[in-house]
Design a protein around this nucleic acid. Structure first.
Lengths: 162, 162
DNA sequence: GGCTAAAGGCAAATAATTTGCGTTAGTGGA
DNA sequence: TCCACTAACGCAAATTATTTGCCTTTAGCC
C-alpha cells in the first residue's frame, strides 16, 4: 500500500531535494530525520474510514481488529510504529493510540445503539490492542487465529459480566 | 539507577574516544549508533535476580509486576525500550521479551510446586505485560493501581477457570 | 616458525549537520 | 497605503559524522 524506500537510503538532503528546499530548512523545522519520519508516520496512521458495518457489532469488531493487526504487522506498518516510538517526544505515539480508540469508540457507540453487549474501551485496549501490539513489537506478529482468540475472549468476559 | 547522557550528546566518535578505539572500529562492528544502543539496552535489560519470594505466589507476582512497570516506565527504562525498538532487527526485542517470560516462568513453576492456582504464561503476557507496555509506549505509564488491577484481574480469571 | 583471516588503526574522501547572515513573505498597526 | 516587525527560508561556510582504502596487528592453525 505504501511504497517506502530502504530506510538507510532516506536522508534529509535527499528529502530536501525532492521538496525543492534546502536541507537547512528541514533541519530547522524538524531537527533530525527521526522526528520528521515520526510526524510522517503518525499522519499516515490516521484512519480514513470508520470501521465497516458488516453484521453484528461483534463481527464488525472481529473484522476491524484483523485488519488493524494486518496493517500494523506489515513491513510498512511496523516501520511506521518504529518511527513513532523512536523519538523521545510522545505526542505522536499518543496520537496514534488516540486514532485506535476513536475507531473503537465508533464500535462501542454502535453496540450501545443496538443494545448489543460490548466491552468497554479500556477492556478492548488492554486485552485486544495491547497484546497485538506487544506481539508485533517484541515477538512475532499475531496470526489471524490469535487475533480471533483475543476478540472472542474479550467478548466472553463482557457477556459474563452482564 | 543507570546514568544516561542526553541522547543528543551521544555520538559514535565520543564513544570511540572513551573506549580508546577509533570511530571506524565501531562503525565497522555496529554500523550505526542505533544498533549499538540497541545492543547495550538489551544487555542492560537482562534481569540479574529471580523474582523475590515474599509470600504467596500471587503476592510475588504483584510485587514483581509493580517493579517491572516502574523500571520500564522510568526515563532510563523507556529510553532502553525505544533503543531496542528503533532498530529493524528484532533480535533484541525478542530477547527482551524472553527475559520477561523467563522471570514469569519462575513464578509459574513456584505456583505449580506449591499447588497454588496461577495463570499461564500466555495469559500473563497478554493481559498483564502487554497492557503495561502499551501504556508506557503509547499513553501514560500505568499507575500502581492500574498495575494492581491488571494482576488482580488475571488472577481472578485463573481462579474462575479452575 | 610461517601462513591466513579477522579485526583494528590511520587518514583521506565523502556526506551530513550546524550556523551566521541576508532576503523574502506575510501580518498588524499607524 | 505604508511601515515596522516577525517568522521562515536560501545560501554558503564551518563543523562534525560517516565511509573507505590501505596497512599493521593479532590470534588461531598448520
Amino acid at each position: 500500500m505504501l511504497a517506502v524506500m530502504d530506510r538507510t537510503e532516506v536522508t534529509i538532503p535527499l528529502i530536501a531535494q525532492r521538496a525543492n528546499v534546502t536541507p537547512s530548512t528541514i533541519y530547522r523545522r524538524w531537527g533530525d530525520l527521526q522526528e520528521l519520519l515520526a510526524d510522517v508516520a503518525a499522519s499516515r496512521l490516521q484512519p480514513e474510514t470508520e470501521p465497516a458495518e458488516i453484521g453484528s457489532v461483534r463481527t464488525d469488531l472481529q473484522a476491524w481488529t484483523e485488519q488493524y493487526a494486518d496493517e500494523m504487522s506489515s513491513g510498512a506498518g511496523r516501520q511506521m510504529i518504529r518511527d513513532i516510538l523512536s523519538v523521545p517526544d510522545t505526542a505522536n505515539a499518543e496520537k496514534c493510540s488516540g486514532y485506535t480508540q476513536q475507531q473503537l469508540r465508533v464500535l462501542i457507540a454502535r453496540a450501545q445503539e443496538r443494545g448489543e453487549p460490548f466491552p468497554t474501551l479500556t477492556e478492548l485496549m488492554d486485552y485486544v490492542i495491547s497484546p497485538i501490539m506487544y506481539r508485533i513489537l517484541f515477538e512475532q506478529p499475531p496470526s489471524t487465529d490469535c487475533v480471533r482468540g483475543l476478540v472472542s475472549r474479550v467478548m466472553l468476559e463482557g457477556a459474563a459480566k452482564s
